[in-house]
Design a protein around this nucleic acid. Structure first.
Lengths: 345, 345
DNA sequence: TAGCCTGTCCAAAGCGGTTTGAAATTGATT
DNA sequence: AATCAATTTCAAACCGCTTTGGACAGGCTA
């Protein structure tokens, strides 16, 4: 059942039927009622492909997920971010198109997506230092919103980010206030922007108290359980081991905990740990009382908001770039406490 | 730059240009060369929306991910499955459209996707017992492939699944061979088909050795770290605690390990554990030597193959439903061993 | 009564490709 | 030289919608 057939059945022109269904004013309320009734009865659904061609809009948003070709990691936060964004799209009649792309091919994909009119805009995932993609997208005039930021880019662009620097600064200060002086950082890979900012916040907090950062206590790895475990093991073997850890993700945090408990140390008593909690649905941080003290920020909510920003930018192309900085909460769990009295061994 | 303009520049008709670019034989090789050269020079990209309308094909596949409205879990295996499927789509010029849908609304979404011609086919995720979606999709004549199976559905349909029953049967037998008699199962939610099959395999193995299953040693929960931990704690407090565990996912397995080590027990020595390992990229099971003994099957590879099946079904609509059963490997890690001699406490 | 809005409706022209059916060209055959 | 088939090219229809630019009827004003 297409528009023409429906119009014929009603004895109306396609024009009128189209307008009736799309809420245009130049149609009498009585015929509008007739049309909507008939449309429902024959369960007419306008063909997406035709609408898209006729209107020149794709009614779709592209999410381009780079899979760094070397290590094929599919960042687990994407799933929740996309779930959040998907809610916004669904409400607004947009589709979500997902491209998983080896990152040496991204240029071509972006150009294609734009030139072929497959999507109306893009969410940029996983921004790096001086990320060249933003320049490219600006050049071809493609609306986009970055999830995160790209340190080094000077021209204004639209982004939505968590205040990673402040979150990690606060977390570090919190540990310092407990008397910790040897605080380790188990970070993500530091060509990723978020990891750079977290390190900065951590270093700022240390510097503000006049504490020199120890390179031995800073690791920068993929955020898997195993890497977290390994990094923590190495640090705990140190002559002057850390009394507290900062971990960049829940998953690293699980590995970290394993390393700690394996040594017979108790989390929150012998060793303090703060993680960053993206509030992933399948990795809840306890039910009522959080297990980990954490800097928390829902990546799902970030997805919702980033999608809203992008739709707004698409609707108002002339407007200036938008930015939104979400603050992470510092939530207190059972994984932090004062520095224990030195044990005699 | 569109087809008409390109044709004009070349002094050819749009027809010829279109055919030249699409490899039709009724075009001389010399003009084809001219056309392709010009297309590249002006970097002409045919408009997706126009192609879709003209050909009547969406060149897109829908992945409908149900978020059971009660518990908003975004299953982490989706990310890797989709990454695998995405590779196949990219190779074949298809887009991947992702809809995250509260599961009371799925009917409408499927009907819409079909009637509006947004996608050419569907991958059905997370099949349940007697899943009503398959019936619906058959009724409206929508090509689809199920990731998993739907016990209770009698009419043939296309699916790709891991042999969950055999995998868990083998895993259980492996533990039995080590002398374990109290073997616990930490399963996923048992309205999910895969969970039912895993339990079946487990029960079969026990029954074959004449061992009665103990309901206290079987839990059925969301597969999060915390649930795994809780379930394991409860079982370890049992009067006759299990000496071995089977866990339905790596994440449950992490919680399980925590419960074990928290009690001062050693994994693989005091307590044996086998998990199911979906080979998720961000949850590797060790590098060289696997940490967990596991039934392993790459969900990413499953995504690749399911996508291939679906594209094939779309290309040959008349063909019979296809099925593919992947066998899981049983890989031996460090988490299993013989039953320890009873300790005196 | 003519002229002018206003409110409804419609024919037709897009959107940018593909595809059908026919025309023009070429080469081989008689 | 004429005929025919094969090769190459093209004009036009089509996909199913939106949107432009009227047309038409009825009520008002001048």
């Amino acid at each position: 059942m297409n528009l023409k057939e429906l119009a014929q059945k009603l004895g109306l022109s396609p024009t009128t039927v189209s307008r009736a269904l799309n809420g245009y004013p130049e149609v009498s309320e009585s015929t509008r009622a007739r049309v909507t009734a008939a449309a429902k009865r024959h369960n007419y659904r306008p063909n997406t492909r035709a609408i898209r061609l006729a209107t020149g809009r794709a009614m779709a948003i592209g999410h381009v997920i780079p899979t760094a070709s070397r290590h094929e990691i599919m960042n687990p936060v994407f799933a929740d971010f996309i779930a959040g964004a998907g809610e916004t799209y669904a409400r607004n009649g947009y589709d979500l198109i997902l491209s998983i792309v080896p990152d040496d091919d991204e240029d071509r994909i972006y150009r294609d997506l734009h030139a072929r009119g497959t999507v109306d805009g893009i969410i940029v995932h996983g921004p790096r230092l001086n990320d060249p993609r933003l320049r490219l997208l600006d050049d071809i005039g493609f609306p986009y919103v970055v999830h995160g930021r790209a340190t080094g880019t000077v021209t204004p662009y639209s982004w939505l980010d968590v205040n990673n620097r402040r979150a990690f600064r606060r977390a570090t200060e919190f540990l310092l206030d407990f008397g910790h002086r040897r605080i380790a950082l188990i970070n993500g890979l530091e060509f990723m922007d978020f990891a750079i900012r977290r390190r900065t916040g951590y270093l700022e907090a240390l510097a503000a108290r006049g504490i020199a950062a120890d390179p031995d206590l800073m690791s920068s790895e993929e955020m898997t359980e195993l890497r977290g475990y390994r990094a923590a093991c190495a640090m705990l073997r140190h002559d002057a081991p850390p009394t507290a850890f900062l971990a960049s993700s829940m998953i690293s945090g699980l590995g970290l905990r394993r390393a700690i408990e394996e040594r017979g140390l108790r989390l929150g008593t012998d060793i303090s740990v703060i993680i960053h909690d993206d509030a992933l649905s399948y990795l809840p941080n306890g039910d009522d009382v959080p297990i980990y003290t954490a800097t928390r920020s829902s990546v799902r909510e970030a997805g919702r908001q980033a999608a809203e920003m992008l739709l707004d930018i698409i609707a108002h192309p002339a407007s200036a770039p938008q930015q939104r900085l979400l603050e992470a909460e510092l939530i207190i769990g059972q994984s932090t406490g004062p520095v224990p009295a030195p044990r005699r061994s």
